[in-house]
Design a protein around this nucleic acid. Structure first.
Lengths: 136, 136
DNA sequence: TTAGATGCAAACGTTTTGCAACTAG
DNA sequence: CTAGTTGCAAAACGTTTGCATCTAA
């Protein structure tokens, strides 16, 4: 729980029941959900919410920088409500579930300038892959 | 160039003109291509090759472990023929182009056992993000 | 009151699949 | 000869968009 809703409110973001429910669903869970999973859970609280609104809302949260989009698995994107605290991801190759992990050090500092090829490097993400207890 | 074709032949993989052309196109280029880009280049050498065959062939190469699939950007997957030599990726947020980089150290060793949550961790990939010289 | 959010359904880009024809071994 | 591969077209999948309606501020 990282108070996503508070942060969005604090930014003066126009609040609607749909947006609140999307934020609550995303923030309440510690695994990272796909857009469709968010929609399924949101429907439980607000039956008339549409898939398009969920997609649009998630996209806006990403643009605001309050949510991170994870394209880590080959299938649907997953959304991470924990955009402020630096962390990395542990992905199960079997079921696609994602856990946050916090290895030591900042990966950005490990890429020497002579390996940046003129790029302006601004972020680094580490994805650890393996099998979760259930899948192994 | 990493002799992808040789490796595939060495595994007794049934060789056809389509498969050879896909392997050549993928291996000949140092940027990492999308399936559609591979198809476009393959058509230049073998006009009747179909999109489905390119997709299937790339998928098989991935299953064989000779090619790595990169879902790094929100768009189409890209394919990396260099599945042996350990390396990381530098992705342009503007145009999606991907470069190989070789930072020091093995990221796997940076994830302590108490952060593995029962997972059998087998791989770690670092994605550096930024803007390439053309996009910045 | 009104700029902006919603729901619907249709479009979109990427990838997979069913099936008959073809071909490497 | 035959198991495995191909091309085609259509379907599947995740996601985005156009537009009329509705609503938070």
């Amino acid at each position: 729980m990282s108070d996503l809703l508070e942060r969005l409110r604090g930014r003066g973001w126009r609040m609607t029941s749909q947006r609140r429910v999307v934020a609550e669903v995303l923030d309440g869970d510690h695994v990272h959900l796909t857009a469709d999973e968010v929609h399924a859970l949101a429907v439980g609280r607000l039956p008339e919410i549409s898939r398009a609104t969920v997609y649009n809302t998630l996209g806006e949260m990403v643009s605001l920088g309050e949510v991170t989009e994870l394209s880590t698995d080959g299938r649907a994107k997953r959304y991470d409500p924990n955009a402020h605290r630096p962390h990395q991801h542990l992905v199960c190759s079997g079921c696609g579930v994602i856990r946050d992990v916090h290895p030591a050090g900042d990966p950005l500092t490990d890429l020497p300038p002579d390996q940046r090829y003129g790029f302006t490097v601004s972020a680094a993400a580490i994805t650890y892959r393996g099998l979760c207890p259930e899948c192994s």
